[in-house]
Amino acid sequence: MLEKIRETAAFLKQKMHTNPKTAIILGTGLGRLANDISDSYCISYKDIPNFPVSTVEGHAGQLIFGKLGGKDIVAMEGRFHFYEGYNMKQVTFPVRVMNELEIKTLFVSNASGGTNPAFNVGDLMIITDHINFFPEHPLNGPNIGDGPRFPDMSEAYDKGLIKLALEIAKDKNIAVQQGVYLGTQGPTYETPAEYKMFRLLGADAVGMSTVPEVIVANHCGIKVFGVSVITDMGVEGRIQKISHEDVQKAANASEEKMTVIMSEMIKRS
């Protein structure tokens, strides 16, 4: 695995003419943030050695290098999911490559269902913690790289970055929520009973991604900031039938607010 990570990183370094220290993973319906990246150049996943290929509608499937907030960044326009049939080593492979490229900060975004009755569709939720409900752990097997065998997860989402995001949201008059994200494997959306269970477990939002990448980022020593766009409500009396298209549409509507916060965070950090 380490050999493949280094091979992929070496290939990308040959193609890169920027020096990003910040990476962004764009979730479902959130790919339009890529339009705000200036001086950009792209590398398709299918052209990158050892990289999986995104199969989900709304995930373009490319790495974008350029500037956001006046600083060099790299963005994944499309991520990989456990439900696509990839194992956790494949799902989190890009984060391992980011570490090899000396990325120091990772921004993760996703579309999720709200289980907190105080939330509404379109809300941005800054992730303060997560619950891992995936059936496979991304650190199973031999320990990869120099990370600890038993990583501490008491601050999976960097408190300093959360504080900065809240300050920016206040400055820009953007309403945000805070809460716990629960990651489950999908690909079905949750039943009303599952939503209720997840709320009882302490989740404010639930989705099908993010947690594996965040675990591996912490294992690598990369600081993480996460945000969920609430695209549907899993609260009794407010549950409606939902489709992937509905999720994309709701995420698109909130993307501008997320872009403002992330861009300013990168600029100030």
Rank of each mutant, 00 (worst) to 15 (best):
I266F: 06
P192D: 02
L106P: 15
Y189A: 09
M258C: 05
V247I: 13
L101Q: 11
L164N: 09
N120F: 00
P138M: 06
V216D: 03
I37A: 07
H130K: 07
M258Q: 09
N132Y: 08
R238D: 11
G183A: 11
F51Y: 08
G122S: 07
Y181I: 12
K71R: 13
G160T: 14
D47R: 12
P138A: 03
S269H: 08
N252I: 10
H137P: 04
K89D: 15
V74I: 09
V108Q: 12
N140E: 04
Q14T: 15
D123M: 08
N120A: 01
T259S: 11
G31K: 06
P94V: 04
E194W: 09
E102W: 05
N140I: 07
P20M: 06
M153H: 03
A111T: 01
S44A: 10
H59S: 11
L30Y: 09
Y157G: 10
L164Q: 00
G78F: 00
D123A: 10
D232Y: 00
Q178D: 06
A111S: 05
L124T: 13
M88C: 01
V214P: 06
M197Q: 13
V180I: 12
F119H: 06
Y189E: 09
G183N: 04
F80I: 05
R238C: 11
K4I: 01
M1K: 10
A75F: 07
S40M: 04
K241E: 13
T18L: 02
L201A: 14
N110A: 07
M76G: 05
K163H: 15
R6H: 15
G202N: 14
Q178P: 06
K67V: 09
T231N: 03
A217N: 02
Y157N: 03
Q248D: 03
V247H: 12
A118L: 14
E155P: 01
D39L: 01
P142R: 12
V227L: 13
A60Y: 12
L63F: 08
T188P: 01
P212T: 10
E155Y: 03
A217Y: 00
M125G: 14
G226T: 04
S112V: 08
I222F: 10
F133D: 03
K89G: 08
L101H: 14
K241W: 00
V53C: 08
L30S: 06
A60I: 14
K104D: 15
K89S: 14
S44V: 00
Y189T: 03
S209F: 02
D47I: 06
A193I: 11
M265G: 11
A175S: 15
N140P: 03
E100L: 04
V260C: 06
R268F: 12
G179F: 07
K170V: 01
N35M: 11
E255C: 14
V216A: 07
G202H: 03
R79Q: 06
P192S: 04
P52G: 00
V211M: 02
E236Q: 02
L2C: 02
L201E: 08
N19V: 11
D123C: 02
N218K: 13
